[in-house]
């Protein structure tokens, strides 16, 4: 789906922010653990949109230039949150302050419309929302093997790539956590892709959402 259609249906269409919040899931995991496959399948089965790194970054780029979109995002935050985010990020001294502020606004703006959000510290940003925070985990050797097979590179090169990308991701999440600290535990559920297939992980995640839903009802 083109990014403008995603923005339109997520932030502007009437049915975008429904009274009954559609399913919201954040999915995190090591590079090579199969996060993308699990997230896509979850979004498909839940019939919600899928927001990966590329989609999130595209929305943020658009929000930088689009005042109406920024206003719409801010209107979806709880009353005092927008000014709090602004003041908090203004205290920072890094070049990424604007990006991080827009990321928080984007993720909080997506929440009422539901979706499956991959990575980017969304599990921290949404920790006080009605959300399933899923982590798909695998050991470094398993991840390297998957990456080597998928990209057709040597195992040695894949090991290096997995370690580098995971390090960058950890640094990114640590930056978010520093600016947006929460008190609750990081994930609701962690499942191993070393022992479970994509479909098995999706089935268990859906079952966990069912448990939460049933309790709320």
């Amino acid at each position: 789906m083109p990014i403008r259609s995603i923005i339109q249906s997520t932030f502007f269409d009437k049915e975008a922010a429904q009274a009954d919040q559609p399913p919201l899931v954040t999915v995190t995991g090591e590079f090579g653990a199969g996060v993308e496959a699990v997230s896509r399948e979850l979004a498909k089965q839940l019939d919600v949109k899928y927001f990966d790194y590329w989609v999130l970054d595209s929305i943020i780029r658009e929000a930088r230039l689009n005042f109406e979109l920024r206003k719409k995002m801010e209107s979806r935050h709880p009353n005092n949150l927008a000014s709090w985010i602004q003041s908090f990020f203004q205290k920072g001294d890094g070049v990424n302050e604007e990006y991080l502020a827009l990321l928080v606004k984007t993720v909080l703006g997506i929440a009422p419309a539901g979706g499956v959000i991959v990575g980017r510290g969304a599990h921290l940003i949404l920790s006080d929302h009605k959300v399933l925070r899923l982590k798909v985990e695998a050991g470094p050797e398993f991840c390297a093997k998957q990456v080597a097979d998928r990209k057709g590179i040597s195992l040695k090169a894949a090991r290096k790539m997995v370690a580098k990308i995971n390090k960058e991701r950890m640094k990114f999440v640590a930056d978010i956590y520093e600016k947006y600290p929460g008190y609750s535990s990081y994930y609701d559920l962690v499942l191993s892709s070393e022992v479970m297939s994509t479909q098995q992980i999706v089935d268990v995640a859906l079952s966990a959402m069912g448990v939460i839903q049933q309790r709320a009802a």
């Binding site: 535990s185 559920l189 448990v211």
Partner: peptide, 24 residues
């Protein structure tokens, strides 16, 4: 230390009660 991950499943007890955890 292993190159494999240590758990097949981690359940957050903030989110799930013992009964719910067992069912999952």
């Amino acid at each position: 230390t292993s190159v494999h991950n240590y758990y097949d499943m981690v359940v957050n007890s903030d989110t799930f009660s013992p009964d719910e955890s067992v069912e999952l």
